[in-house]
Amino acid sequence: MNQVKIKSPGTVANLVCGFDILGLALNDPYDIMEFRLLDEPQVIIHNRDHFELPTDPEQNVAGVVLQAAIEKAGGNIGFEVTIEKRIKPGSGLGSSAASAAGAAVGANLLLGNRFSTDELVQLAMIGEKLASGVKHADNITPCILGGITLIRSIYPMDIVPLATPDLFVTVVHPQIEVRTADARQILKQKVLLKDAIKQWGNIAGLVAGFMRNDKALISRSLEDVIIEPVRSILIPGFDEVKQQCREAGALGGGISGSGPSIFMLSETEAIAQDVAGIMKAIYSRIGIDHYVYVTTINNRGVEVVEGEWSMVNS
């Protein structure tokens, strides 16, 4: 194999109370990436979208991951990649993770699957560090593995795939940008012990809810007393969206990653569509352009897709 085309899914990180340790993969939106193996140690990047991301590998999330893969593979090969981003950067839907994880998996496929899952996550985290300044894996692991994942530790790497309940996910993406690095800077560096204890209970309850397929427990546990109260001030309409969606029957939800997107989990597609209508109505009234997805949890992660090759300069 000297070329491959993959689909890299968007993700929801944190899942309200699980800051930097919980995440799930979405069936929509996703990026498309096409890779070709080169016989020289270089990275060539083409963009097939309007986001004008850097094509210098040193400044591109996928580029730094591919450079690291070249070094890890011995330094005698290279990669050409064409990226069609459908996950808007700064959306809170794992745009940088899709690029980073997609690059790691694409490179690995062309190298005969020589890297382990832990090595793929470690490679992809290099891209996340470029994007946000921090090597976090809560978007990376569900993007690669699919489903819902718990990152018990990254030093050493300890990834725990969780059971995935049959739920619908509604996401509203207000067309404003919240940079991950900026959203981290406003967080408190110290928390009260009583808040930490409450947060631990919610995280444990959410994980138990997923493993037991206990929708009521999932709903009760979708509460954040540490991160969300601070970050939500960056997102117009957040409190109204959350309250009205829960009143309409959603199990709960909150900020997707660092925002500005907001996600809600629902037991049925009918409730998920009602939630979508509420989101649209609120942001239309506020006067903020927005996009709404009604989707499900992606259990496959990054995957090879069939189709015509359209690699630039191929």
Rank of each mutant, 00 (worst) to 15 (best):
L37Q: 07
S261C: 09
S132G: 04
V171M: 06
D49A: 13
H173N: 14
Q244H: 04
I154N: 07
I77R: 06
A208I: 10
F79S: 00
V241R: 02
G75P: 12
G18L: 07
M1K: 15
Q59Y: 11
T170A: 07
T11N: 12
G94F: 00
D195M: 13
G10P: 02
G74S: 01
V105Q: 08
S284P: 06
E308V: 09
V121K: 01
G257Q: 15
V12T: 13
V65L: 10
T164K: 04
T296S: 05
G127M: 03
I278F: 11
S314T: 15
T82F: 03
L120C: 08
K198G: 15
E303R: 07
L37E: 03
L93P: 05
V12D: 11
Q185S: 15
N299D: 13
A131I: 00
D138F: 01
G74C: 02
G254A: 07
P29V: 13
A98L: 05
S116Y: 13
Y283N: 07
I262E: 09
I159T: 05
M264W: 12
D56A: 13
V302K: 03
E58R: 13
M157C: 14
E267M: 05
P41R: 05
D49S: 07
N313V: 15
R184D: 06
V275A: 04
L66D: 08
I226P: 08
G249D: 04
N2C: 07
K88V: 12
P57A: 04
S284N: 14
G254I: 00
G23V: 09
G257I: 10
L130P: 01
S132E: 10
A124T: 10
Q175E: 15
G90A: 06
N60I: 08
V302T: 05
P29M: 14
G259D: 12
E306Y: 09
G18F: 01
P236I: 14
G78I: 02
K129I: 02
Y291L: 14
A248K: 08
D31M: 07
I282T: 11
A204N: 13
A281G: 15
G252T: 01
A248Q: 12
A131P: 06
E223L: 12
A25V: 00
I203A: 01
E84M: 14
Q199N: 07
T164R: 07
F19V: 06
F35T: 05
G253P: 05
V191A: 11
Q175L: 12
